[in-house]
Every structure is written in structure tokens, then in C-alpha cells.
Simulated scan of single mutants.
Amino acid sequence: MLFIDKSNHIFAFGPNLRPVAEAENGEIVVFETLDALSNQISSEEQTLAAVDFSKVNPATGPLYIKGAELGDALKVDILDIEVAERGVVVIAPNAGVLGDMVKEPKTKVCKIKDGYVYFGDLRIPAKPMIGVIGVASREEIPCGEPGKHGGNMDTKLIKKGTTLYLPVFVEGGLLAIGDLHAVMGDGEICVSACEVSGKVTVRVGIVKGMAPPYPVLET
């Protein structure tokens, strides 16, 4: 089993990425991840105003998969998602779909324990998912944006048990993963979910000559 440390991360996908590790077709790989804010927030006194936005949405990697070539599909079986025991939710005026309803920036630190996220007096079932997962793209695209390469897709369907097929644009694919959520609604309408660091275990594979035009999920 291959392990990629969270210190190896990128903030943009693109054609000139350099791999930090190599995997065989069919190998199991663990990606250790920072949260979407690069673990910059440690207390509820800190808001988005204190965040260095050049360090938002880090994705651990990239991983070179031997044998992956242009025109192939990279198959990623999500075997497990482990999240830390602490997550953060942030809101700010004019950020997100409902940002016009937010009067001041606020931060909520949530305890995560025994399969639940504790938001004040609320106990919400944890449903870990991956916000950012993708491969090297033809042009540089920030990790905060989605595209044909994957990236910040932010769908609850990218969870344990899902298989993701990504089009390969450069040799080796160059897979990177980050932006885990302990729980998220149908989109980040107030600009964040319960942002959390953690570990993602995947099995990487190659489907020769079967690159999809866009990422495809099998649940």
C-alpha cells in the first residue's frame, strides 16, 4: 500500500504537474489531506478574513499511475474516507448563494465523533465525501474549480463505495485528492461545508482507450 503525505499538495491542476509518487495499475493508495482552508483556522475567533486564499482547496498529490496514457480512463475506486475529529464551517457576507443574507463573517468549529457531526446543539449524521478529486488538465485550473479533469466537483456522491472514471490528458494521469467534508448539503450555499482533514483510501486502475468526455460516477 502506498501512502502520500499531506505535505505533498497542489493548488491547481495543469499540464506541467510533477508527480510525488508512482503507483501500479490496481494498487491501493492512501492520500492524507489538509482541509479546504489548509488547516489555517484553529478557533471560532478566526473568520474567512484571516485566511490566506492562495492556500485554499489543497489537493494531495499528484500521483503518477504507470501505464495511464492520453485517451484512457483513470478508474478510482473509493475504498474508505476517514475524517478528523474536528471540522470547521465558515460563512461570510456575499459568499455563496445565500451570501446576501449573511451580515457578518462567522466560524463554527464542530466536533466529529462516533459517526456524528456536532454543530452546537445539533447532532448531524456524518457522511464523509470528497470535494476535490481530479487529474492533470490541459491548462492550469485552480483546485477550487470543476472541469473535464474533475477538480472541485463538490457532490455528495463522491463517497466511500463510489467508483470515479476520469479522462487522462497527460501520461500517468496525475491524480490529486483533497477538500474532504464530514457532511454537506446539496451544495455549499453558504460557501462551505463541514471542512475537515483526513485520509482517503483508493484503488487506482486504467481502462484503456475509454476516456469519458467528463468525469463519470458509478455508485
Score class of each variant (00 low, 15 high):
1 M>D: 01
3 F>A: 13
3 F>C: 13
4 I>V: 10
5 D>G: 10
7 S>F: 06
7 S>T: 12
12 A>G: 12
14 G>Y: 00
15 P>K: 00
15 P>T: 00
20 V>C: 01
25 N>K: 11
26 G>L: 12
29 V>G: 02
31 F>D: 11
32 E>F: 06
33 T>I: 12
34 L>G: 00
35 D>R: 09
35 D>V: 15
35 D>H: 05
44 E>R: 08
44 E>F: 01
48 L>F: 10
48 L>R: 08
50 A>D: 06
50 A>K: 05
52 D>I: 15
53 F>K: 04
54 S>E: 07
54 S>C: 08
57 N>F: 04
60 T>Y: 04
64 Y>W: 05
65 I>F: 00
67 G>P: 08
67 G>E: 07
68 A>W: 00
69 E>Q: 10
71 G>V: 09
73 A>Q: 01
77 D>G: 13
80 D>R: 12
82 E>A: 09
82 E>G: 04
84 A>G: 09
85 E>W: 02
85 E>H: 05
86 R>N: 03
89 V>S: 14
89 V>M: 15
91 I>S: 11
92 A>M: 10
94 N>R: 12
94 N>L: 06
95 A>G: 07
96 G>P: 13
98 L>W: 07
98 L>N: 11
99 G>A: 10
101 M>V: 15
101 M>N: 13
102 V>P: 00
103 K>V: 13
105 P>R: 14
107 T>D: 02
107 T>F: 00
108 K>D: 08
108 K>M: 10
112 I>N: 06
113 K>V: 11
113 K>F: 03
115 G>T: 04
116 Y>H: 13
116 Y>E: 13
118 Y>E: 14
124 I>H: 09
126 A>W: 01
126 A>E: 03
128 P>L: 05
129 M>E: 11
129 M>I: 12
130 I>V: 09
132 V>M: 06
137 S>L: 05
138 R>L: 15
142 P>M: 08
149 H>T: 09
150 G>T: 07
151 G>T: 03
151 G>S: 03
152 N>R: 04
155 T>A: 02
155 T>V: 10
156 K>F: 02
157 L>A: 08
159 K>Q: 07
160 K>D: 02
163 T>K: 01
164 L>V: 15
166 L>P: 02
167 P>H: 01
167 P>S: 04
169 F>Y: 12
171 E>T: 02
173 G>E: 00
177 I>Q: 02
178 G>M: 07
179 D>Y: 15
179 D>W: 14
180 L>A: 10
182 A>C: 12
184 M>F: 05
184 M>P: 08
185 G>A: 13
186 D>A: 05
187 G>C: 14
187 G>T: 14
187 G>L: 15
193 A>R: 10
196 V>Q: 07
196 V>E: 08
197 S>T: 15
198 G>S: 15
198 G>F: 11
200 V>I: 14
201 T>S: 08
202 V>M: 12
207 V>H: 04
209 G>L: 03
210 M>S: 12
211 A>L: 11
213 P>I: 15
214 Y>P: 05
214 Y>H: 08
216 V>W: 02
216 V>E: 03
218 E>I: 09
